[in-house]
Simulated scan of single mutants.
Amino acid sequence: MTPDQAESIYRQGLIAAQAGRWTEAREAIAQAITARPGVPVWWATYGLVLESQGDLPGAVQAFAGALNLDGDLAMAMDGLLAAAETLTDAGRTDLAEGCYCRALALTPDTPAALAKASVLLRAQGLDPSKLLRRAAVLRPDRYA
């Protein structure tokens, strides 16, 4: 498959996702990623599709894959953090903690990840002050 063909298949998947045809979207985007695995936005979009289908573990892996390629991709970080919040709300703090750890390992200077991880620590009865101090240093206007 040529790069242009992969781009075309990705766009078909994106159109299918926008129309709510999740299975078709998932298959097309997966094909595009197989042909060109180094496109971070495709991974993040794949994560959104998987999340829409209820495959939260798969979505987390896709968001992390996107962040491995581009640690500054806000779409992927937002997806990973949203997945962690969903897991926390569902009482799956073990999996949520893994998401936050992954987010912080991939992009350690992400104030939102630090702040949200601190909420999880507090819920687990642990002291979140180190994470909150770090978030405040990075974004004093928001977390101080």
Rank of each mutant, 00 (worst) to 15 (best):
M1C: 10
T2Q: 05
P3M: 08
Q5F: 12
Q5I: 03
A6V: 00
S8E: 15
S8V: 07
Y10N: 10
Q12D: 05
A16C: 05
A17M: 00
Q18S: 10
Q18G: 15
A19G: 11
T23F: 11
E24F: 00
E24N: 02
A25Q: 02
I29S: 09
Q31C: 01
Q31N: 12
A32E: 13
A35S: 12
A35V: 03
R36D: 03
G38L: 01
G38F: 10
V39A: 11
W43V: 04
T45K: 11
G47K: 01
V49K: 13
Q53S: 08
G54R: 03
L56F: 09
L56A: 07
L56I: 15
L56D: 11
G58Q: 07
A59I: 09
A59C: 10
A64Q: 03
A64H: 10
G65P: 11
G65M: 06
L67N: 06
L67C: 01
N68Q: 14
G71F: 07
A74Y: 06
A76C: 05
D78R: 11
G79A: 00
G79T: 02
A82H: 05
A84P: 09
T86F: 04
D89G: 01
G91D: 10
R92S: 07
T93F: 07
D94S: 09
L95H: 10
A96H: 04
A96E: 05
E97A: 12
G98V: 02
C99T: 01
Y100G: 13
C101A: 13
A103W: 04
L106F: 11
T107C: 08
P108S: 12
D109T: 14
D109R: 13
T110D: 12
A113Y: 10
L114I: 02
L114C: 05
K116V: 06
V119I: 15
L120K: 00
R122Y: 06
Q124A: 10
Q124W: 07
G125E: 01
K130T: 08
L131T: 08
L132Y: 02
A135N: 06
A136T: 00
R142S: 11
A144F: 15
